[in-house]
């Protein structure tokens, strides 16, 4: 294993860790506004680190084809970074317009009584 392979493996592992946090956060958080925080953002960060790691691994052999593939993966990363906030905002906007009230600590204590 070369040094590039080790760095790529570490980045993929970090990305999978972020993905794990996103999946568990979607399950654990109480309402849909707070579920958006792990869903939209931890997944974006996981994609960023994992795809960057794969692009680094592809640069092991410097031929035209692998460089173009790495560029395409970078294109996916840039695309995700532009579209992820837009998708998150579309979902939260739909929730606000549908009149869903956000979960707060006060409503939780009212529910306990």
């Amino acid at each position: 294993m070369s040094l590039l392979d080790i760095i790529a493996t570490a980045m993929i592992a970090l990305g999978l860790f972020f993905f794990l946090g996103g999946a568990i956060g979607i399950l654990r958080f109480p309402d849909f506004y707070s579920r958006l925080h792990p869903a939209g953002k931890l997944d974006t960060m996981g994609q960023f680190t994992a795809l960057s790691g794969i692009a680094l691994y592809l640069l092991n052999d410097l031929s035209l084809g692998s460089v173009l593939t790495a560029l395409k993966i970078l294109l996916i990363v840039v695309f995700v970074f532009i579209t992820s906030p837009t998708a998150t905002h579309a979902i939260v906007d739909a929730g606000v317009r549908a009149g869903m009230t956000p979960w707060t600590k006060e409503t939780r204590e009212e529910g306990r009584r």
Partner: peptide
């Protein structure tokens, strides 16, 4: 703001 986890721009 939206990309930073913990905060989402609603409007």
């Amino acid at each position: 703001i939206t990309l930073t986890p913990g905060t989402i721009t609603v409007y």
